[in-house]
Amino acid sequence: MSSTAKSFQETLAARHRKGWWFEWLCLGSTLFGIAVLVVLLSGIVWQAFGWLDWQFLSSYDSRFPEKAGILAALWGSVWLILLTALISIPIGVGAALYLEEYAKANWLTRIIQVNLSNLAGVPSIVYGILGLTAFVRMFGLIRVPPAIVVISLGFTTVEIPLPGLPFDRTVMSGALTLSLLILPVVIVASQEALRAIPSSLRDASYALGATEWQTIRHQVLPAALPGILTGVILALSRAIGETAPLVMIGALTYLAFTPGGIEGPGDILADPQSLVRAPFDSFTALPLQIFNWVSRPEPAYQHVAAAGILVLLVLLLTMNATAIFIRHRFRSRTRW
């Protein structure tokens, strides 16, 4: 009897030892991700040290690594993200509103929903091919030269430059492509935010005689806004780092001007029309410029690339931090 008890104690100890090893194995795997992040970040900071300065932020790309800068790419990315947000937010939120508030459980709704989850799994480079064919070349079918519409206001005339079709390799093509790419993410995130709104809020609004749209406009949307915003910002921060689709649509990597020639707020005041021109200008973007620098054979460009990566990561972290801030700020206010 005592011998079995002893062997039970022994097996139990062995089992606990095995469990202890297993826990450390799992913890190690978790810490591995964190360790990689630390190595990656510190490695990039180390490579970029001494290269990330004001000169780098304020000059264009160059054949000389010491003179290379990120100005064109920075403004290109800013324009790209602004336009992508302007295009994808209304469409994405609109689609989510339809699916959550209006759609009945029929075949069309089911198809849209299944399609969304499949679209989220399509590689980004395939979106690039779609953008190249549909927006940059417009299937080689449509060709409209650019035009200028002149509106006379009596005391002055306003000239509005209309873009030609196809869009060619412009900010607009890039923004449309990235919008399609992040649309599934925006829609799913907005749907989740809308689903979190209790139906009692809607019922109360209907009971007061509000129509469907009035209910959505004044009750549901404001309540779901923090959730939607968080999802949208995270989706946009994915768009800002996307490289493959931009390589596909052929955004340039060597540019010595910014979209619309805008290098700061002063330029907009001096020439307001540049705001209309900018979306239809050629462009480069941060990840593209980094890719270009990484591909160059001179070792010094590895440092330039690291400096560029640092700028991109700072931008990304700012966006992520904003999303987290919004999530926390508004979660505490919710009253249901």
């Binding site: 990566i309 972290l317 992520n320």
Partner: peptide, 24 residues
């Protein structure tokens, strides 16, 4: 503590990972 760090890791652009692979 760990979840947000993994989220940051998930949000790093692939061009940065490419640089990491080639240079490190």
């Amino acid at each position: 503590f760990i979840k947000p760090i993994l989220e940051v890791l998930a949000g790093i652009p692939t061009v940065v990972y490419g640089y990491f692979a080639l240079v490190f």
